[in-house]
C-alpha cells in the first residue's frame, strides 16, 4: 500500500514540477508584481474603476466571444459539409483551410489590411460600385475578421473528426419520426457535435483573448487588452500595471471557460 502511494507520487512528479515551474510560480510572482507599483494593490482596483482598462477588458472578451461564435458556425457548417461530401479537390481544400495555422499574427494582420485596408480589395470594389471606399481593417471589425481567419483552422479539424463519428442512422430515425432537416440539425447534429464545439470553442476563445500580433499590426484605434499590456509594459514602463492586467486577463479567461464548460457539462455527460 505504501509502495503504491510512493509510485503514484513519483508519477505525479513531472506534471507537478511543470505546473509549479511554468504556472504556479510565475502566476504568483505576477500577482505580487501587480501589487508592487506606485499605487500598490490599487492597481487591481484600477482595472475595474479606470474606464480605459475596463473598456479594453470588456471589448477583448466581446471580440473573443464573437470570434468564437462566428468560427463555430463557419467551421460547423463547412466541417460537416466537407466530411459528408467527398468531391475532387476535397482533401486539397481541407488542407488549404488549415493553412493559416502556420502564420504569425502579423501576417494575418497584413492580409486583413490587403483585403479591407485603405488600398484593399474591398475598398476598391466598393468605390467602383458605390463611389465610397469601405475601409474597416483598422477597426474592431478588421480585428474580428483576422481572428476568425486564424481560428477556423483550429476548430474545423476537430469538428470534422466529430462529424465523422455522427451516426447517420440517428438522422434517419429522426426523419422517420417526422423531423424536418432543420429539426434534425437542432436535435441530432448539434447535440452530437456539442463536445467538439466546446473543446474547439474553448481553444478558439482563449487564443482570441491572447492574440497580439494581429492587433499590433492593425494598431490604429483598437484597444484590446494584450495591446494595453504591451503599451503599459514598454511605453509607460508601468510594469506593475502590466502585471496586474496580465493576471486578471488570465483569471477572467479561465473563469469564462470554466463557466461555459459547467453550463454545457450536464448535457455533454448525457451525450455519453
Amino acid at each position: 500500500m505504501r509502495h503504491e502511494t510512493r509510485r503514484l507520487i513519483l508519477l505525479l512528479l513531472p506534471a507537478g514540477i511543470v505546473f509549479a515551474a511554468f504556472f504556479l510560480l510565475p502566476m504568483a510572482r505576477l500577482f505580487f508584481i501587480g501589487g508592487s507599483g506606485k499605487t500598490g494593490w490599487a492597481a487591481y482596483a484600477a482595472i475595474l474603476t479606470d474606464s480605459l482598462y475596463l473598456d479594453s477588458l470588456l471589448s477583448t472578451m466581446a471580440v473573443a466571444a464573437a470570434t468564437t461564435a462566428a468560427t463555430l458556425v463557419i467551421s460547423g457548417i463547412s466541417g460537416v459539409f466537407l466530411q459528408r461530401h467527398k468531391f475532387p479537390g476535397n482533401a486539397l481544400l481541407v488542407s488549404m483551410l488549415t493553412f493559416p495555422l502556420a502564420f504569425p499574427g502579423v501576417v494575418i494582420g497584413f492580409m486583413v489590411i490587403m483585403l479591407a485596408g485603405r488600398q484593399g480589395l474591398i475598398g476598391q470594389v466598393t468605390q467602383a460600385l458605390t463611389g465610397e471606399k469601405l475601409v474597416f481593417a483598422y477597426t474592431i471589425a478588421g480585428l474580428f475578421m483576422g481572428y476568425v481567419y486564424f481560428s477556423i483552422p483550429r476548430t474545423i479539424l476537430t469538428v470534422m473528426a466529430a462529424a465523422e463519428k455522427l451516426d447517420p442512422k440517428l438522422e434517419e430515425a429522426a426523419r422517420s419520426l417526422g423531423a424536418s432537416p432543420w429539426r434534425v440539425l437542432l436535435d441530432v447534429i448539434i447535440p452530437g457535435l456539442k463536445p467538439a464545439f466546446i473543446s474547439a470553442g474553448a481553444i478558439c476563445f482563449a487564443t482570441a483573448v491572447g492574440a497580439f500580433g494581429t492587433a499590433f499590426t492593425l494598431a490604429a484605434k483598437i484597444n484590446v487588452l494584450p495591446m494595453v499590456i504591451y503599451t503599459e509594459f514598454t511605453l509607460s514602463a508601468n510594469i506593475a500595471m502590466a502585471a496586474a492586467l496580465s493576471f486578471v486577463l488570465g483569471i477572467v479567461t479561465w473563469l469564462v471557460l470554466a463557466v461555459a464548460r459547467t453550463a454545457a457539462g450536464s448535457s455533454v455527460a448525457a451525450a455519453g
Binding site: 442512422k169 430515425a173 429522426a174 422517420s176 417526422g178
Partner: peptide, 17 residues
C-alpha cells in the same frame, strides 16, 4: 419525414441526448 412510417434499426439509433 412526410411518409409517416416507423423505423427500427439494428443499431437502435436512439437519441443519446
Amino acid at each position: 419525414e412526410q411518409r409517416n412510417v416507423g423505423m427500427v434499426f439494428q443499431s437502435y439509433a436512439l437519441f443519446p441526448n
